[in-house]
Design a protein around this nucleic acid. Structure first.
Lengths: 227, 227
DNA sequence: TAGTTGAATTTTGAATTCATAATATCTTCT
DNA sequence: AGAAGATATTATGAATTCAAAATTCAACTA
């Protein structure tokens, strides 16, 4: 028997709009037409507007009084600030993970780490990225701090759509892997302070930001045309 | 001429409900009646429900499908987790503040610090608390990271209503002041790493949590009666 | 008396309607 | 032709209405 879980319409709508923004179907700075989205989703304006309010409080869109909604436009500074914050949160997750993670949990992360190394040696960037992310998510989960996880995923969502920097110099990559070596050592030693420090300093995020300068700049000029 | 700033009704309502929760007029776990609040505020259900959705996404209330809203019930773990997070955020704010704060800014914080010391020597707890908070807010503002500030104030709001722990042992108080001595030294030396570390370890929050165990426990039994 | 069933009532979810502010279109005039 | 102003259209803000789910409460059964 299937459990009948009737989610509210506005949650469904919010999810759909999040997808549209993430996928880029709704461009940054683009005006969001209520009627258009209503027709697209086949719902009335009431649940749509509720969804928009939620998305605004999540920082994904902005609501201009009497002038509708538009997709939040990311400035370079905003993205930098967000990554700084995510770094701090990861640092905390490291400290807490060391306190709470089980021996099996550590083994699981170690396995991911080894897998990641294989992808590194194969120069398989996509798989490397994916496993890398799994490691960070694993530590986050091991922190056993739900508020932390909630905040992190909100921040992550905000900048998700600009995470398309696929260029990664060999030097940066080597240093990132080096960081991860230290990371796994600290984790296995359950050295929370150390792991926290490593994660805070981990250049992964900053690297992405650096290579993002172009992307954001591009957006800026595009939006200038729009406005 | 007065600037006509017509804020949306739902924002006004959200503010009012936040106040009610903060003040304790709406008790944790208490069911929120839409009709009742509508009559109280003199608005229709539409803006009220929009406000409730926003407050839910802020973590202040929870929405049960088809069963209305209730004020979020704080567990001891939730509060602990939130304070851990706030500590991490303060740590980051310290690092960033050292990079961005002006010499005048440092002087201003120093002035607050000295004022706080006077209140400490006078054993004037309320004023001590207030100035203490101003110092932390000042550092936060000096971080020049708006995303950070936004997130911090959200977390702060969530636990605001349990910040009524007025008992403070002499020993704890002495150590808190000691922390602040180190804090101001690190700030004046613009030693970001150090200031960050101090703020993360600053026991102020943990102290409050410790003394909160009672309050929350009390709530738990109350709610058990409700449910 | 305790527990269960089933209407009556209340409350919530969502669509519709109405009012008002913003935008676009059309005159009119220089 | 182009700018300024008036009018029409459209979009948003908020109240109202309608439908469906939950709650209440009385009657009934064991």
């Amino acid at each position: 028997m299937s459990k009948i879980q009737h989610r509210s319409l506005y949650l469904e709508v919010a999810d759909r709009v999040r997808e549209l923004i993430e996928q880029g179907d709704l461009a940054p700075g683009e005006r969001i037409s209520e009627k258009q989205l209503c027709e697209r989703f086949g719902v009335s304006r009431t649940p749509l507007r509720e969804a928009l309010k939620v998305l605004a409080s999540e920082g994904l869109i902005e609501l201009l009084p009497n002038r509708g909604a538009r997709v939040m436009r990311l400035t370079l500074k905003m993205v930098k600030d967000t990554y700084d914050l995510m770094g701090a949160l990861e640092g905390l997750s490291g400290e807490l993970a060391c306190q709470n993670i089980s021996d099996e949990g550590i083994k699981a992360i170690r396995a991911l780490h080894d897998e990641m190394l294989r992808h590194y040696h194969d120069r398989n960037l996509p798989d490397y990225f994916q496993v890398n992310q799994k490691i960070h998510e694993g530590i986050l989960a091991a922190s056993a701090n739900e508020v932390l996880q909630e905040m992190y995923s909100n921040l992550s969502q905000r900048v998700k759509r600009v995470r398309y920097s696929k260029k990664m110099t060999d030097d940066f990559w080597r240093r990132a892997v080096q960081d991860h070596e230290h990371l796994i050592i600290a984790l296995e030693a359950r050295d929370g302070k150390r792991l926290g420090q490593i994660l805070r300093d981990h250049l992964c995020n900053k690297l992405e930001v650096a290579s993002l300068a172009g992307v954001i700049e591009e957006e800026r000029t595009l939006n200038a045309a729009n406005a």
